[in-house]
Each structure stands twice: as structure tokens, then as C-alpha cells.
Design a protein around this nucleic acid. Structure first.
Lengths: 193, 193
DNA sequence: GTCTATATCGAGATAGAC
DNA sequence: GTCTATCTCGATATAGAC
């Protein structure tokens, strides 16, 4: 175990990760996390100074989760276009959660941009978007179109967020599938120049 | 004044509307609304039984705001395609707020889908999306393509939400403008069949 | 390291005077 | 209709025993 070892710490982060996703950060209390882990409230302060510190740990955890996801996209194939397809399909592997709770980074970001105080977690949040954005840019560059990489990455992220939001609001599984298919068609069309 | 008359009631709704948008529903307290209006907390309960009742009134107010916006789109021109362009450009008229707080209906919806208890406001929220969706469908039908109306309306809403989310997260004014321009190009291209 | 007990604060909500 | 005073609860956070 490193500096962040301890099984209990990890259990707290896991429960918080799940609860922040399903209920939202502000709607999740220490009691909720305590109920889910069986670890008493007061104990949290041995591992974290504040609730915001737990949030930071959760965001770090999501960063790791997304890195793993991207690595899986890379393992699947060496073709950058296919890798992008792999990324786009990812929400389908989490379909029921996406329909119920939206995007793990998009919905959390939306909640945290409203935060008046803390600007700290703000930077952490765009870090997850940046991770995806940079990875997409790499794939585009490998396709020999580095000049379009930035614009394209932003467009792709925007489209995915839009499809997920609408699917979530209407709990519309058909639209989620159709929206992703449309993005894939757009991928093929726009990257074959 | 009708059943919902009273200047004070209106001032409460106006302040809540603004605060729910800039801070979020759950992050806005009665004290916040009291500070902004000068009306004491206890007084709110003369006009509303619960905080959720205030939320319902705010959603109703946004419904009215969006109806007015759509009516303005209709006044501008009789051409359905131009009316859609008018709708798409709307976020630019609220640019600074959109960059800071996102979409008034999108961000509120994202916050409220997480609500475990109340299913009431849930239905109210999709009502605003439905208002936009139905209006878009009307325009498409008038263009003689009623079969595509539903799919097209969902796509358009998803694209706008996506562009707004990314603009908001990165506070990227250039992307907001570019994203809207891209949607307009897509509008022209896809509706000229 | 782990747990209980408790402090402190601010939230939504109520009662009742004026 | 308007205002003050107050209730109750649950939130984050702390102290200190074991």
C-alpha cells in the first residue's frame, strides 16, 4: 500500500463514487456513505479532512477509470478510426446507468460549475474532459490530420454529451443507440477525407 | 392579478429563478432568496407550502420564458427553416450566462434527474424540453417532412445541449459560436432534401 | 486505526403577533 | 399580508476513549 493505501479508504472512495454519480455530490451525505460502507461517519476524518477531499479522491478515481477505458480502446485495435469507434460505443456498455444518471463526468461537471466557493475541484473536473480530448486528438493526428484535431475532439465530445443528456432526460434507450450510431456514421464520413 | 398575483410572490419566483440557474436548486437556500428579495424567510410560506413548490413555480416561469422566445422566432419570419435558425442562435443572446451557468433547462434537468424522492418536478422538467421538441417538429412538418420530425427534433436538441455543455465546462466562447454555426450548416444541409 | 459521543451550524418549516 | 421568533432536523466536523 502506498500513501493512499488502506482498504477502508478505498471502500469510502468507491461508495462515494457510486453515490455522487447516482444522487449527485451535494445530495450525498456522510451518513449515506456510512450506510453503504458500514464505516461510521466520524471515521471518515481519519482519511479525509473535508467532504471536498473525498470529492477530489473520487475525481482521481474516475480519471483512473477513464484511463483504463482508453487503454482498452487501444488494446482492441491499432487503427485510430476503430479506436474512436470503440470510445463512442462505450456508453452502451453502461447503458442502464447512463439512462438513469447521465454521464459520470458530464453530470458532475454540470453540478460543480455552479459551485460558488471552491475553484479547486473545477480544475480537476476539466482534467477528465482533457484526458478524453487529448486522446481523441492523438487518434486524429495519427490519421494524418493534426490541424483538425482540436476542433474535431471538441465536436465529438459535444455530440456525445448531447446524446447522453437527451437519452437521460427522456430515459430513451432507442435514442441513445440511434444517437451513437449517427455519431459513428459522422466519424466515418468526416475522417475519410 | 389572478390566482397567482401579488408582487411579492413574483419577486420570490424571479429571485429563485435566477438563483436556481446560477447556483443550482439544491445549493440555493431560503436565506439566499431572502437576501436577494429583502423578503424575510418566514414570509415565503404564505405563498408556497414547500421549497419544491417554489421550484414548480420557477419551472412554470421558464416555460413562459421559452414560449415567448419561440413566439419571437415566429414573429421574425414565416419560413420554418429561418425560424429554426432563429432558435439555434438564441444561446448567443444569453452568451455570458450560458458560458457561466449552462442551459437553463439542461442544467436544471441534470440536477433533478438525480433527485431520489420527488417525481413531480421530473415531469415538469421534461415539459420544457417537450415544448421545444414539439415546436421544432412543427417547423419540420411545415417543411413537408413530418416523418423525420421526431428524429430531427431530438437530434437538434442533443446537438445544442452538447455544444452548450462543452462551452460551459471550458468557458469557451469561440467554441460556442463555432458549434452554433456548425449546427446551422447542418440545418441547411439536412433540410434541403 | 477504529469507534462513540458530541459540537456547531444552517437548512426547511411553523406559530402566532401585528 | 407581513414580520419575528422559534422549532426540528440533518448536515459537516471535532474530541477523545479504546
Amino acid at each position: 500500500m502506498g500513501t493512499k493505501g488502506s482498504a477502508n479508504r478505498q471502500r469510502i472512495v468507491d461508495a462515494a463514487d457510486h453515490l455522487f454519480y447516482s444522487r449527485g455530490y451535494n445530495q450525498t451525505s456522510f451518513s449515506d456513505i456510512s450506510d453503504e460502507t458500514g464505516i461510521p461517519r466520524g471515521n471518515f476524518y481519519y482519511y479525509f479532512k473535508t467532504k471536498e477531499d473525498i470529492l477530489a479522491a473520487v475525481v482521481d478515481a474516475r480519471l483512473v477509470e477513464f484511463r483504463v477505458m482508453l487503454q482498452n480502446c487501444e488494446k482492441a485495435t491499432t487503427d485510430p478510426l476503430q479506436r474512436l469507434h470503440s470510445l463512442v460505443q462505450f456508453p452502451l456498455h453502461r447503458e442502464s446507468q447512463v439512462l438513469k444518471y447521465g454521464c459520470p463526468i458530464g453530470s458532475l461537471s454540470s453540478e460543480l460549475v455552479k459551485e460558488q466557493d471552491t475553484e479547486i475541484s473545477q480544475a480537476r473536473l476539466t482534467a477528465v474532459f482533457d484526458l478524453l480530448k487529448n486522446w481523441i486528438e492523438e487518434q486524429i493526428s495519427e490519421l494524418g490530420q493534426p490541424a483538425r484535431a482540436n476542433d474535431f475532439a471538441m465536436d465529438l465530445l459535444a455530440r456525445m454529451q448531447g446524446v447522453i443528456i437527451l437519452s437521460n432526460v427522456y430515459r430513451d434507450t432507442a435514442f441513445l443507440h440511434k444517437g451513437i450510431k449517427d455519431i459513428q456514421n459522422w466519424l466515418n464520413h468526416t475522417l475519410s477525407n
